[in-house]
Simulated scan of single mutants.
Amino acid sequence: MQNKSLSGPAHSTINRRQILMGAAAFGLSAGYSVRVAAQTYPSQNILLVVPFTPGGSTDILARLLGQRLEGALKYPVIVESRPGAGGSVGVGSVARAAADGHTLVMGHIGTFAVNPALYPKLPYDPVKSFEPVSGIANVHNMLVVHPDVPAKTLQELIEYAKQNPGKLNYASGGIGSAAHIAMVALADRAGITMTHVPYRGTAPAVTDLLGGRVQLTFTGAPNLLQHVEAGTMRALAVSGSSRLKGAPNVPTVAESGFPGFEASQWYGILVPAGTPKAIVDRLNTEIRTAMAAPEIAERLSLEGAEVWTSTPAEFRDHIAKEMARWGDLVKRTGIKPE
């Protein structure tokens, strides 16, 4: 009896059919697994990484949001600081984390808009390594000086800087930090020269300003308002498009002779690339609900910040625009990492 070959057209048809059926089954299985993962999310504690030292605006916002998310997600939200290299160390660690929604990072203008132009080899890609979830808040920078500085207004400070080039030292939370970039933008616009003194975080920068070891800074208002109210710092201007509710007598930079100037910080939550869309959407919903609470808006407003939430797509577009804007300033002014 002649054996029938299994290599002919009929067998090819069967193979193709089996492959297609297998692929379809795999697709259904994968889709089912994603849905189940989203329905059972979260299944463990959630880690929210702050890529800077404790005590700054990023840390303050992370802890405020974390408290709210704990109630909604029914699991502890652990806020952990992982500073280093302008925030690149902490952000890079999240890029390598499991894409299951249990590791979040507090994104920031510095780590996602400035660092890509500042550092030639980042341990993450600000676009490809993450799924944006939602914006959180905008924080206005406040320009403050030590009381010994003989300037009561921004214009007086500029005149003093022009008469004493290089004499003024300004503090920031590090090279490429929001405070550094804001001051570079202002100095570039005003045509003045000052000496930059970078610190490993906002908190030590503010401490040295209080001690008179540096003369000024231009950082997030939540870190400064208590010192301004106590008279240990003098506020000259804020960087937003409007005055702060918590400091209504402090003019904006735009009102002080530089129309259109704005250099505020923004913050938002991102997760590793590949995180299921259902989990991203769940996080987006919970974050926007948490930040919509009237008491949150009131507290942020008094501290020099404002709630800013978004869809994942809106946050992605915002990051792209900010990368282009601040990347141009970095290249034009020649800012270099240490």
Rank of each mutant, 00 (worst) to 15 (best):
E131W: 10
D188Q: 15
F218K: 04
L118C: 00
M183L: 00
Y119S: 09
M194K: 05
V184Q: 03
Y119C: 06
V133W: 11
G212Y: 00
F112H: 14
R213G: 09
L104M: 14
E229V: 08
V145I: 12
M142P: 06
G211E: 14
G220L: 07
V144Q: 03
I109S: 07
Y199V: 04
V133G: 00
S177T: 04
H227R: 15
L209Q: 02
A205L: 01
G176R: 07
T219I: 01
Y124P: 08
P204I: 10
L122K: 04
F218G: 01
N141C: 10
G101S: 02
K121A: 11
L118S: 05
S129V: 08
H140R: 12
A117N: 10
L216Q: 02
T111W: 09
V145F: 08
Y124E: 13
R234H: 01
I158T: 05
G107W: 10
K121W: 06
H196S: 12
T202I: 14
T217L: 10
A230D: 11
S129I: 03
P126A: 14
G220H: 13
Q163K: 14
L143S: 08
S93P: 08
S129R: 10
R189M: 05
A187Y: 04
Y124Q: 06
Y170L: 00
L209D: 03
E229H: 06
L118T: 11
G135V: 02
R200E: 14
R234L: 00
M233K: 02
A117R: 00
V214I: 07
R96G: 02
T111R: 07
T217Q: 03
A187L: 05
A97S: 10
S177E: 08
N138H: 12
I192V: 11
K167V: 11
T207C: 11
M233T: 03
V133P: 11
R234V: 12
D148H: 11
T193F: 15
L157C: 07
Q226H: 12
G107Y: 05
A113I: 07
A117I: 04
V94A: 00
A151K: 11
L186K: 09
K152G: 10
R213Q: 12
A203S: 05
A161K: 00
V105G: 07
V214D: 06
K121H: 13
I181D: 00
T153Y: 02
S134E: 07
G135W: 12
A178S: 08
V197K: 15
G166W: 12
H227M: 13
M183V: 01
M142H: 00
G174K: 13
F218Q: 02
A221Q: 10
F112Q: 00
G101Q: 02
P204D: 12
T111D: 15
V228C: 01
G211D: 07
G101W: 01
K152I: 08
P120Y: 08
G110K: 04
P150S: 08
L122T: 07
N138T: 04
Y199H: 11
F112R: 04
T202S: 09
F218V: 03
Y160N: 05
G173V: 14
V105M: 11
M106R: 10
G211T: 15
M194Q: 03
L225Q: 09
V197Y: 07
I192G: 02
R234M: 09
L225D: 05
P222E: 01
I109M: 14
G173F: 00
T103F: 08
E159A: 08
V206C: 05
V145C: 00
Y170M: 13
T219H: 10
P120G: 06
L143G: 05
M183Q: 03
